[in-house]
Nucleic acid binder design. Sequence first.
RNA 1: GGUGCCAUAGCCAAGUGGUAAGGCAAAGGUCUGCAACACCUCAACCCCCGGUUCAAAUCCGGGUGGCACCU
Length: 319
Amino acid sequence: MDSKKKRPLIVLTGPTAAGKTSLSLGLAAAVGGEIISADSMQVYRGMDIGSAKIKKEEMRGIPHHLLDILDPSEDFDIVRFQALAKEAMAGIYERGHIPILTGGTGFYIQAVTRDIDFSPSHKDGSLRESIAEKARDQEEGFLHRWLAQVDPQSAELIHENNEKRIIRALEFYYENGYPISEHNAREKEKESPYNLAYFALTVERELLYRRIDERVDKMMEEGLLEEVRSLKARGCRRGMVSMQGLGYKEMLDYLDGCYSLEEAVRVLKRDTRHFAKRQMTWFNREKDICWLKKEEFDFDEEKILGYMLDVLREKDIYR
RNA sequence: GGUGCCAUAGCCAAGUGGUAAGGCAAAGGUCUGCAACACCUCAACCCCCGGUUCAAAUCCGGGUGGCACCU
């Protein structure tokens, strides 16, 4: 349990469009790190513009993991991410390098930093479907009442309108024979098995929103619509996990005639702002997070980097 | 200059005598196998002044502002 024995792990997160990618390169170069993408959309091949994926030629020779590893038709979830990330980390440690987890998917990051155990049996989703099926023509709070009977604790925690989470809780209960609330409570106790440096890069909200709007415009200029059009031609549809990504669902809706292109762009900008806000809420709650507010560093990446290295030295991750 | 219509939260907007629906935005929050997901919380002395009435955002008069049409 001595922190010296723990392996180093650097996390660089922050809301979308804060500038994580750029900073991660400087950081990796400075500490001899390899980057693992903690992003639920950049794993997909062919989804480059909308996911703001780094281009090969921008990588400056720094190894990047977990990019372009799946076809958009494949499902991706946190368990799969966790396994892949751990695998990548093992390789990085073996090479004597430091893993730098970079991305904005807070939940994914947490799965790694706290090493959440998702092991209790999970089959194929058929149980989930049959639970949803049972509720099909029942009245309003049916699922929630059902959950209240088998797992009152979770029922209290999960709002009755949050069907997705209710179904997961029920699924867990019937697959494992004990409440998910019990499992979660146990997992919550765990502390990070890593010598962790957890950075969150951000800018003041107003500026962040402006950057988001600008970035969306830029994506459109770079051909986001064409990217989605070709994904659609290859069979990508709304129901796929990959097509739930910002930029993809809006363009798909436009192509399906749900609204004008102008409206699609407006919705995309708005939803991206909402997303950034949710990310902030998530990170605000994370403990031991080290905030990097750009305006406090005069927007100078070198200064930010310098500060980060100080923190890393303090934690004995870098010298 | 005349006539008509309108004036409700940042925006859109219902209510037309009994004490202010809803949507969007903004803000805050939840999250342990779809998380770029899903979900929750949240706003008004109804343009101003006077009158009628037990009671007015709602009716009447005047003012101000906007829109439309006419000369």
